[in-house]
Simulated scan of single mutants.
Amino acid sequence: MNILWDFDGTLFDTYPAYSDIFYEALRGSVTRQEILSQLKVSFSHAASHFNLSDQQVKEMFIMESSLHPKKTPPFPNVENILKSANANVIMTHKPRLEVMNILNYYNMAGYFKELVAGDDGFSRKPDPESYIYLHNKYNIDLVIGDREIDILPAKTLGIKTCSFQNKTGGADFYLENYEDYFLINL
């Protein structure tokens, strides 16, 4: 099984830290749950929804880039799936250096054959450009992501999809935790 993974909110539990950053930027004017629901669409959607200025967004990216990896741990049991796959690749909008810092901190970089990061020049999801590149190179069997924009490019290519901790329609499979992954009939 060759798996294409999203990073934030799929491999690593980054949303609590990102929600805290939004909460601080919004000076506590909305709940963390409301922030999370907007982040689950996309960062740019949340920034627009909360009418953040360009300066606020820049400051938030600086705060995000300075987060210690211990604030963004891997999801429980995800490593078992990584070990069982023939090939794992990542497609994320996050900058490469930030992804590598987290992967290296948790000694997980070796599980991945390739990383396509936000600063690699590919179009942003849901554009399928990066998925096409990775699928042509690794013959992807499954895409796992936590947002609809992670699933849509895979559906365009006819690749099976798994939505993690998000019940938005359109995925082939849904998981709330990785303990249940091996129960899916792929």
Rank of each mutant, 00 (worst) to 15 (best):
F50M: 04
S84V: 10
L183I: 08
T168K: 06
S48M: 01
G28T: 05
S19D: 12
A171S: 12
S163F: 03
K40S: 00
K167E: 11
N177T: 06
L103V: 09
P126S: 15
I102Y: 04
G110D: 15
L4A: 07
S130V: 08
K113R: 15
F75V: 11
P74F: 09
G169V: 05
N86D: 15
K155N: 10
K125Q: 07
N107F: 11
A47C: 09
S44R: 08
I90P: 14
F12K: 07
N2C: 01
S84P: 03
L97H: 04
G121H: 11
L39K: 06
I149Q: 06
Y105S: 03
N101P: 03
D119I: 11
A109R: 15
P74A: 01
F7K: 01
F43K: 06
L175Y: 11
I35Y: 12
V116L: 03
R124I: 13
V78H: 10
I35G: 00
L183K: 11
P126T: 15
P128M: 00
I149T: 15
I90K: 05
D180C: 04
L134S: 04
K155S: 03
E34P: 03
S44A: 07
Y138V: 08
L115I: 12
D141A: 02
D20E: 09
I81G: 09
F7M: 10
I21E: 03
K83W: 14
D20W: 05
Y181E: 04
S66I: 08
L82E: 13
S19H: 06
N88R: 08
S123G: 03
A154H: 09
E79I: 05
F173D: 09
H68E: 02
V78Y: 13
N101K: 15
R96E: 13
T72L: 02
Y18F: 15
F61W: 09
F50P: 03
P153M: 00
K160T: 04
K94T: 15
I151Y: 13
K94I: 05
A109H: 13
D141E: 12
Q55L: 04
A47V: 08
V99C: 03
I35K: 09
K71L: 08
S130T: 08
Q33V: 09
I159V: 01
K125R: 15
S123N: 13
S84C: 06
S29E: 13
D180S: 12
I132N: 03
A46D: 09
K58N: 14
L134M: 13
E64N: 10
K155H: 10
H68R: 06
V30G: 05
F182W: 07
T72Y: 00
K70F: 03
S163W: 06
E176A: 06
H93L: 02
K71F: 07
L4G: 04
Y138Q: 04
L142C: 05
I184H: 09
F173V: 12
N80W: 07
T10R: 14
K155V: 10
